[in-house]
Design a protein around this nucleic acid. Structure first.
Lengths: 209, 209
DNA sequence: ATTGCAATCACCCTTCTGGGGGATATTGCA
DNA sequence: TGCAATATCCCCCAGAAGGGTGATTGCAAT
């Protein structure tokens, strides 16, 4: 089993040093090469269109257009694009989102050179690679309730220290409604209070930390 | 103004890819070279002792022994060691801690290759380089009250969703005392409630996010 | 010695939160 | 079309949180 041509890789990360590291690691292999680098999601989609790489290495945490948006954009251009997500986020929610959006693999920034190379090579064949820490976390949270858009919006305001009444006013709804949503959030996350809910939501990747 | 010998750099970061990136960027320069790589704080101190590098590039976010502990250890070996902190943490508190512990410079992971090279070269002469985002944040929080060890301990329990009474029991103090500490925390951080306090403390680097 | 700060505890009072119900649209998808 | 999920609103109530004020102890720096 082999490939005729070198695997053409597009590297997407907002940190120049990380791009350098990926480039130098990839260029050491004989069967792959970096054909482009993007520093944000918009640039990633643009470069994907012009370069049409075999595999895209994509960070999720980026300014302006983030990785999930980039992934959506890339998949719209080429629905069977091979995209390896490479990020520091361990939260199960983001992983699920990325995989649902069609990510081929999911690696952590702490991955070794070999793991990264292997994931790129596997992705070029369409094989999936999920870091073990990731699949453990996915398994641990599988079947758990998902927060609704409304609940997420409310939780973000809670995180900024807003009371139920202030949240109600800013969303133009009754404070009783906010309380209902809060109860639902606490139950879904298994949190003991609103602070705990924010902490858990951050860990699981429901909201930014 | 110049140096006779190449600048000997020690690279410390738990992500292999970041170490690769730093190495490849540094090796492109004629007046500096990487003499060692460490993946955690303990290894960093060890390698510093055996290699005695001119400049150490140090990430703060590492497992086991973190960057601040490594910085302390390195300074104990050689009090005038040049250490460039290179991290994603923007919180003013960690920056202040690092500078107090004797860090020469403070860069963000988003820094360009040129900024990193320049900071290493400057550090080798003992010159300080602080990223502008960092100095802005330092200025914005200068003169602000600092949380005590007790307050930090309590805030970490608050983050995990513990009530004042539970915190009191786990610390073997009165819940009235916890309430007193909480009031102090809210005032010092300018927070509207305990959730907000945790959020602000995370942003400023008082506690981990 | 005296000052200052951290940590501890106490009391009062108001507001907010969270847990328990129940009810009625609306919406999206099968 | 009909069901399930979602969003909305309402009531009651006990307990927790937060704001104000004051006081004691111990330690460390001046």
């Amino acid at each position: 089993m082999g490939r005729d041509n070198p695997i053409r890789v597009l590297v997407v990360d907002d940190h120049p040093i990380v791009r350098d590291g990926l480039r130098s690691t990839i260029e050491l292999e004989t069967d792959m090469g970096v054909v482009g680098e993007a520093a944000d999601g918009a640039q990633a989609i643009e470069l994907f269109e012009t370069l049409c790489p075999d595999v895209t290495l994509l960070d999720l945490q980026m300014p302006h257009v983030d990785g999930l948006q980039a992934l959506t954009g890339i998949r719209k251009v080429k629905p069977d694009a091979r995209v390896v997500v490479f990020t520091s986020y361990p939260g199960d929610v983001r992983v699920t989102q990325a995989l649902t959006l069609g990510a081929t693999s999911y690696l952590l920034k702490s991955a070794s050179r070999e793991e990264i190379i292997d994931a790129i090579r596997s992705a070029s064949f369409g094989h999936q690679v999920i870091a073990s820490e990731i699949s453990d976390e996915l398994a641990a949270h599988q079947g758990m309730a998902v927060l609704t858009v409304r609940e997420l919006g409310i939780l973000r305001l809670v995180k900024e220290g807003m009371s139920n009444r202030l949240i109600a006013e800013s969303l133009f709804i009754s404070d009783e409604t906010v309380k209902t949503h809060m109860k639902s959030i606490l139950v879904k996350l298994g949190a003991s209070d609103r602070t705990h809910a924010v902490t858990i939501a951050q860990r699981r990747g429901f909201i930014d930390s």
